[in-house]
Design a protein around this nucleic acid. Structure first.
Lengths: 178, 178
DNA sequence: CGCGGTTTACCGTCCAGCCGGTACAGTCTA
DNA sequence: TAGACTGTACCGGCTGGACGGTAAACCGCG
C-alpha cells in the first residue's frame, strides 16, 4: 500500500542511482522500475527534489539502525571502523551519486530544499559516528578514530584501491587500543 | 591567446561549479563567464565531457605543484595533513560538485570518458599523498596519516563542522611523531 | 444494513522549456 | 594566409511537472 509503494520508489531510486549515476534518474525511469506510473510517483513525492530528500532520510534511518546493531556486535568503536569499509561493490557508487544528486540541484531554485538536503547529509554522518562518540571518552582518540573511518570511506568513494586488510587490521588494533 | 583562453574557460567552469552546482553548468553559462562565445568554447573543448576532463587534469596539476611547495615548507607528512583542511570556504563546494559532475555522466554514453574521469580522480589523490608516502617509511604510520588526511577532507566535504583546532594540532603531533 | 460522499492511491497524457551540439559565415590579429 | 575565434540561427531530444481522470476503500448516518 502507501508506505510500501513509497519504499519501492526509494529502492528504485537507489538502484538507478547506483547503476547509472544521476543523469539516468528520471521520474519515468524511477516510476517504471518501481512498478508505478509517473503520476503515481508524483503522488508520493510531489517533486524530484522531494524524492531525493526522502532517500536521504531513509539512508539516515538505515545507518542509525545499522549502527545500533553493529555496536552491539563488535562494540561501538570497532563497529564504527568496520562500517567504514564498503561491503557491497556498488555502495560507493550509490553514495557518490547521492552526493552528486544533492549537490547537483544547488542554489538554483529553492535554497530551502538545498538546506534540508545538506542537513540530512550531516545527519547521516552524525548517525554513523554517534555510538562511537558515546563509547570513546578520550576526545583525541575519538577524533582519530572518526577521521580514520571517514578517510576509509572517502578512499573507497574516489576509487582508490582498498588498503591491505592485514595493514588495516593492525591499524584498527593500534587505534582502538586504549 | 590559446592557452590563456583555455584556462579562463576552466576557471569559469570551476567558479560556476563552486557557486551553483552541476545543473548551473551549461555551455553558454561557462562561455559567458569566460568571456568567450559558445562557439569559441566548443573550439577549445569539443564537448562538455572534454571540458570536465580538462578541469580534472588541471586540478591534478595544481595539486601536484601545491604539494611540492607545501612539502618544502612544512615537510611532506605535515604538509599532507595541513593540505587536508580546506582554506577557501567554497573549496569543498567546488569539489563535491566536481565529484558530482564526474559521477553524473555515469555509464550512460561513453564508458571511455567515464574511465578517463575516474582515472584522473584517482590521480588527483595520488598526487596529494605521493610526497607523504615517500617521506614516511613506516607503512602503518603512513596509512594512518593518509586516512586521517582523507577523513579531514571528507568531513569538510559533507558539511560537518571543523574539529577544534587545538585538538587537531594535538592529533597531528601525535600522529606525526616519529 | 445500505448508501452517499469523501479520501486515498494511482494512471496516462500532454506541454513548454531547456540544453548540448551543429553549421556556417564572418572578423581580427600576427 | 592561417589560426583563433565571434555570433547567430537552429534542431532534436529529453524531462519535470501539471492535470484531469478513476477505481477502490472507508466512514458516518438513518
Amino acid at each position: 500500500m502507501a508506505t510500501d509503494t513509497r519504499q519501492r520508489i526509494l529502492a528504485a531510486l537507489r538502484d538507478i542511482l547506483a547503476a547509472g549515476g544521476n543523469t539516468s534518474v528520471t521520474l519515468e525511469a524511477v516510476a517504471a522500475k518501481a512498478g508505478v506510473s509517473k503520476g503515481g510517483l508524483l503522488y508520493h513525492f510531489p517533486s524530484k527534489a522531494a524524492m531525493y530528500l526522502g532517500l536521504l532520510a531513509a539512508v539516515r534511518d538505515t545507518v542509525t539502525t545499522d549502527m545500533a546493531e553493529v555496536a552491539g556486535r563488535s562494540g561501538a568503536a570497532r563497529g564504527f571502523l568496520e562500517y567504514a569499509v564498503p561491503t557491497a561493490p556498488d555502495e560507493a557508487d550509490f553514495f557518490t551519486s547521492l552526493i552528486a544528486a544533492v549537490r547537483t540541484g544547488q542554489e538554483s531554485e529553492s535554497a530551502e530544499v538545498d538546506a534540508q538536503a545538506a542537513e540530512l547529509m550531516v545527519d547521516i554522518f552524525r548517525a554513523w559516528e554517534a555510538p562511537m562518540r558515546g563509547a570513546v571518552t578520550d576526545p583525541l582518540q575519538a577524533e582519530q578514530i572518526r577521521l580514520i573511518g571517514f578517510g576509509l570511506y572517502f578512499s573507497a568513494l574516489v576509487g582508490l584501491p582498498q588498503p591491505d586488510p592485514a595493514l588495516l587490521a593492525a591499524l584498527f588494533d593500534r587505534v582502538l587500543a586504549r
